[in-house]
Design a protein around this nucleic acid. Sequence first.
RNA 1: GCAGGGGUCGCCGAGCAUGGUCAAAGGCGUAGGCUUCAGGAGCCUAUCCUGCAGAGGUUCGUGGGUUCAAAUCCCACCCCCUGCACCA
Length: 949
Amino acid sequence: MAKWEAAHIFEADPDAGKQKVMVTFPFPYMNGPLHVGHAFSASRVDAYARFKRMQGYNVLWPWAWHWTGQPLLGASQRVARGDQAYIRVLREVDGVPEEQLQKFVDPKYMAQYYTNEGRIAAKRVGFSVDWRREFTTVWPTFQKFIEWQYKNLKELGYVTRGTHPVVWCPKDQSPTGDHDRQSGEGVTPEEYTIIKYKLDENTVLPAATFRPETIYGITNLWINPDATYVEAAVNSENWIISQEAAEKLKEQEKTVVVNRVFKGRELIGKTFENPITHERLPILPGWFVDTKTATGVVYSVPAHAPFDWLALKDLQQKPEVMCDFGVDPQLVLQIKPVSIIKVDGFGEYPAVEIVEQMGIKDQQDPKAEQATKELYKKEFHSGKLRPNCGVYAGKSIREVKDQIIDDFRKLGIFDKMYDLSEQVVCRCMTPCMVKILSDQWFLNYSDAKWKEKAKEVIAQMKIYPENARTGFYTTIDWLKEWACARTTGFGTPLPWGKGWIIETLSDSTLYMAFYTINKHINQNKIPPEALIPEVFDYIYYGKGDKTQISATTNITIELLDSMRKEFLYWYPFDLRNSAKELVPNHLSFCIFHHAALFPPEHWPKGISVNGMLMVEGQGMHKSKGNFITLKGAIDKYGADATRCGLMIGAEGMDDPDWRADNVKDLKNKFDALTSFANNIITSAKQPENTALEHWLQNKLQHRIQEITENLDELKTRTALQTALFEVWNDLRWYIQRKGNTNAAILVDAIKIWIKMLTPFAPYMCEELWSQTGETSFISTAQWPKFDETKLDIAAEEQENLIIDILTDTQNILKATKITPKRLVFYTAATWKWQIYLRILEKASAGETKISELMKEFSSNPELKPYIKDIATLVPKVIKASTKLSSNRKINMVKIQIVDEKQVMQNSLDFLKDRFDVEVSVYSEDDKDRYDPKNRAPMAMPYQPAIYIE
RNA sequence: GCAGGGGUCGCCGAGCAUGGUCAAAGGCGUAGGCUUCAGGAGCCUAUCCUGCAGAGGUUCGUGGGUUCAAAUCCCACCCCCUGCACCA
């Protein structure tokens, strides 16, 4: 590590003579240490960077730190508050020393601590980063860049103003994000449609629902007779709602003045008007009505809602209940469900039928909930509205739901309100509610033209793996306005909005362009006040008069030009890699912002995504006690094993699983590899040039090709597996066959091998590289290039012959359980080759007709004497040929006749050694062969006959 | 609910786009042998079932279908994972 740093080999500057590759990794958020999850995604970036660097590219791999946002403040506050549980985590999981902990009351100190620790860990794990371009997102110079970015976005009309519902803590007076919650994680505001039924000319009964289309099937309202309701002026209308609802609506852009408080029973038996049909329907008692949900006013659709049907049935079976309210029971008994949806598999009243089918007894039955869900799903997807549904008749609910809401809202019959599906409690123990934030700033990702442009960016981009591409397209379609500013936390102030700070996911969308110039800003100590928008306009757009800009900013013209040149050289970035969880947000935002602010030639070239790291089969969480810091992993297993343990886990979108045993095992493997390689390096010096060496060379070429292709596709797992295990197995096989490690060619093989391992295990490879006598860095050595001239199909097929005969013999021994005294192999007679090769040739072309082949062979005078044997041989060869890959068939035809006897003879020592018996080889053509069972005639090309004594 | 990705021989995990070369790579684990004072590591062999001659049988979530031929293509179903907004 020290040598790399001293030699500055990872520092990259523009070089017109070299092709560039710029790779990036989303800067990590600094409220904690780097962990193995970061390391997984970043290791893949590093492996790619190192690979490309060795291929001769000028590679830039920059790094920075994300400080923007709320959690850092929250964390610091918890330390200040003396939150012991949290402090224990910092101490035991993050490994923060005691004297540092106390200073964490300052959030910036905390962030700086983690940044320093993170940098050390990133260097130790071997990331080949150009650290001269480093920054944190609270540096004033970076913030000038963000200001420029937002100024432009605003001018281009991508920033809008509007309202937005959030989960809100009334005590803290701030939004309550998932991380700020005591309970209710994942709960989001849900939009209810309110239907304004009229009690009388002046009074509204606003019933809340998720199924506004059922308005056509209403039979009555439910009011909880024992709950407290209020009469309140809501935006100048007189509403009857639950007491709780009155409080909620105050936060939802409504003025609410409560005029009267009363019990729900007061309303029972009264009637109200259906705003569509204008008929009057009754208000009935519903004890199941939860006044904490929405308005506390519920309307009944017994034909399609199981709960409504069950409640109505209850009441109809016990009409005397109505008498308690002084109401004529006839009011209940006369109610009939109104069917409005035709669904396959159901008749007139689906709710009634499903209740019967499932044997649901009453409202308390848990199956009622299930029935509701099931029925709604069916009705939503396959249901058609009946003729009594006005202009919507005949349509599916899916098609018209939004339309209905829209239409009736325009008529003033519908309104909306937000509520939570479950209770959310803030960390401060206050129950939360939904608040509509007004005057919010948004990035208008709804903008159709912007979406189109973003899709164009994707269309011209490489996506690794390719099947992640649809994810980007659907995200772009899906994204709506994004609140891009908030009032608390670290970050860049919104240039035009007092008190607003640009939100963390919105300030990290274009900054890769900042890396290209930040080297100059750092080195020349350019002050933030000099970084006026005109400077960035010049650097990024070539706009403006540099003489004038230089005069107003004191940045020299040369420096301005260097920065412009640097940007033009490196941009766009070629690769950005992260976990797939960032596809729906960060990565898509990055695409949107590039589409908005840069011309096509500066659009991103490639994005790659990978899975989420698991630890021993589970998600990694500090609270679960399975959190592994990068530093901890390096301390325990070393950098190389850590990197490889991560990368060998998965590629593509699969989630890798970090298993301590596997990583430990890798560490052992590297020790073994080191001594294996060292042993060869010190012992191999004989020049050897037999078929075996050709075989090894041939194999290596294939491996080079495989590994190179896979790395190019970011298939780091496959590449590493091939580089580590497959090549090792090839070398083992060679050594086994050869019987020693004397051949000088082995050292060359080792050099190729460790070069291909360098992107994954750079430390070990540097070490071994120097053992071979090299004085340069392997990190900058030339990546092995696939060389077709080193391929040797004959050597490959000869070796296959040996492998096949080995497998066959073992198979026989296993089946017969013979302990052999003697092994004899018989290679095929010369005339058989003519038949064999001719059939392979035909088979490669896909036309093996026995009759035609026989005709051809019998007309050949050379084959005349064997014609009887040929008749039995041909179908056998055809069958055997189907088991060969087309590649091998082609090769065999090319190679023509192999002197199998000679090849086997050369391998006799190996075979003897293997079976620990006397082994001999004859040709079928040999007259004086030892062949007591007359096996030789069974011999075929590439399949010698076997006799075991 | 909406969207995306998956289910392969003890485990992890290739293969599936372009059907035959697939009893299906590789790693781990397990068993035996070598090496070692011993353990570990390393090296070699085996590892779905059956088989006294290089073979056969049954497998790739479940059930159907297409095809001479399906882990691979089509349909239906079951199950698992991930994201869903002000939050990094």
